[in-house]
Design a binder for these strands. Structure first.
Length: 287
DNA sequence: CGCAATGTTCGAAA
DNA sequence: TTTTCGAACATTGC
């Protein structure tokens, strides 16, 4: 796990949000332009932001939502490599904003791999963003309740990890934290969502909340690396128990952590702690 | 050089 | 119709 770049999951996005809030709040967007990026689904209607004032910086899942006083909303998704910075990056800049006020009056959106988004929509109109439109509850909000979560899980037969990654049962859980939360809750990633007991759903809720909140706390040091464009190893990486630990001993039982592919994503788990019960054996659950 | 990595979207399949 | 699955996207680093 050395030299891995940092992927913006919910804790990183929340950290960015907390940073943007005091910087951007109440500023007017004077100019907005694309740099080496074409207008389209990922960069739509940016010019509409010009002249509007930023009234707030919110987050839903991994999406940043900037409310504008003209009734629009600036939606930003960092994708895999998105970085927002007041300093002009050397390369891979996609968007540049000019802002009113003192101090840092320029905002740059850098995105090496172009998976990010930076677009203006009518406030609340997420027609062009299906994931945001169907996004589940915020994991760190009062609305993330075990019983409700369990009932949601009853509706799907997808493997629990795949369902989590869909963002529908709960918002903002990405590949890394899905592996971590399932490990902590001792739930096998291939288990059909509807097979989880109420108690297991409860455990998973607790695990998701614990891991995400701890990770947000660990963000302070990570952010420094993050903003210096380096995007290198963050502090929380040393806390990971399953992700990136294939072949290592499980910290709980000393069995070896396995790595498989689930839905095209690297999936790490402990075959000893995270059992697939007999009910599901032989249903394509490879060892 | 080919593969793995990532999150979201799209279209096909069930 | 709804849900699920796999491919595509873009780019870099190993």
């Amino acid at each position: 796990m050395k030299g891995r770049s940092l992927i913006p999951e919910l804790p990183e996005v929340e950290t960015v949000r907390r940073e943007l809030e005091p910087w951007l709040n109440q500023r007017q967007i004077l100019k907005a332009g694309l740099v080496d990026a074409k207008p389209g689904p990922k960069y739509a209607e940016l010019e509409r932001a010009i002249g509007q004032k930023i009234l707030g910086v919110n987050r839903r899942g991994k999406f940043l939502l900037l409310r504008l006083d003209g009734g629009d909303e600036l939606v930003i998704h960092l994708g895999m490599t998105g970085i927002i910075s007041p300093k002009e990056p050397q390369k891979h800049v996609r968007v540049a904003l000019e802002l009113s006020g003192e101090g840092n009056t320029r905002l740059y959106f850098q995105d090496v791999r172009r998976f990010g988004r930076f677009l203006v929509v009518k406030a609340g109109d997420y027609q062009s963003l299906p994931t945001l439109k169907t996004l589940g509850v915020e994991p760190l909000s009062e609305d993330f309740k075990p019983l409700d979560f369990w009932q949601t899980l009853q509706a799907s037969k997808m493997p629990i990890k795949s369902y989590l990654l869909s963002q529908r049962p709960v918002a903002g859980v990405g590949n890394i934290y899905a592996d971590e939360a399932l490990w902590l809750a001792k739930i096998h990633p291939l288990r059909p969502s509807s097979s989880l007991s109420q108690m297991e759903a409860h455990e998973l809720v607790s695990a998701i909340q614990k891991i995400l909140s701890q990770s947000i706390e660990a963000q302070g040091t990570t952010l420094n690396d993050y903003r210096t464009v380096n995007g290198e190893v963050g502090a929380y990486l040393s806390e990971l128990k399953a992700y990136g630990h294939a072949g290592d001993a499980c910290p709980r039982c000393q069995n070896l952590i396995l790595k498989t592919s689930l839905g095209g994503r690297g999936t790490h788990f402990c075959p000893q702690c995270q059992r697939v019960t007999n009910n599901f054996a032989g249903q394509g659950c490879k060892p």
